[in-house]
Amino acid sequence: MKSSVARWMYKRPKFRLVALLAAPTLWLVVAYLGALGALLVTAFFTIDSFTGDVVAQFNLGNFQDMLTDPAYRNVVLRTLGIALSVTLICATFAIPMAFFMAKIAKPRNQKILVALVLTPLWASYLVKIYAWRSMLEPRTGVIDWVLGPIGIRSPGFGGPAIVIGLSYLWLPYMILPIYAGLERLPNSLLDASGDLGAGNFYTFRRVILPLIFPSLVAGSMFTFSLSLGDYITAQIIGGKLQMLGNVVYQNFSINLPFAATIATIPVAIMAIYLWLVRRTGALASL
C-alpha cells in the first residue's frame, strides 16, 4: 500500500512539488502578502471624520498630509538616524567578537560562545528593555549608582537610550552572520596576506572586510529593519522621543488609514535599502 502510493507519486513530479509547497505557499500568499496588500490599500483610504469609520474610497490625502507636515519628516529622519546608528554600533561590536569566536577561540569554546550569544534571545524583549530602564534611570538607575562616583552619568531617557537599548537587543543578529562568514574564510588567506607583508589593519581592510561584506549586509538587514519598525523600546526608554512605530501605534486606533500610510514608510525605506545592497553585488554571494 505504502509502496504503491510512493510509486504513484514518483511518476508525477509535478504533483510532488505541489504537495511539498502547498502549505507554505498558502501561508505566504494569505498571511504575508495578503496583510501587506491590505496595508497598502488601506493607506489610500480615509475616515469619516464624524463617525470615525473607515471610508473605502481611494484618495491621496493621507500621503499629502504626511509629506507636508514637517513633524512627520522629522520622525522619519530621526528613525532613520537611530536605525543607522544601531546598525553601525552593532557592526563595530560584532566584528571583533565574531572574529574572536571564529578565528582565535579554541573549537570547543566556539560552540559555548555561540550559545552565549544566543542566550539573550531566549529572554523576553520586554524584560530586557525594562532592565535597561532600571539601568538608565536618572539618579536612581544602576549606571548613575555604580558609575556616577567616577563621573559617568546615564544619558537618561531619549535618543541615546533608544540607540543603546536597540543595539543591545539586535547585537546577536549581527554577530551570528558575521561569525558564519568568518568561519567560511580560510585561515590561509589571513596567513597569505601577512606573508605578503600586510599588517593586521591592512589585512582587515583588504582581505577580511571585502570577504565578510555579504555577512555584514545580512546582519545589517536584521538590525536596520528591526530598528526601523520598533516602538516599544522608544515607549519605555525613549522619554518623549517618538519613532515611526510610535506614530503608527498612536494613529492605529483613531485613524487606521493614516497609520497604514505611515507604515508604508519603513517598507519603502527597506525596499530602497535592499536595492542599494543589490547594486553592491553582496546579495549574489549571500
Binding site: 580560510p186 590561509s188 588567506l189 596567513d191 597569505a192 596576506s193 606573508d195 582581505v207
Partner: peptide, 9 residues
C-alpha cells in the same frame, strides 16, 4: 609562501 590550498584572494 606558496600555500597548499594556494590561498589566492
Amino acid at each position: 609562501t606558496v600555500f597548499q590550498d594556494y590561498a589566492l584572494f
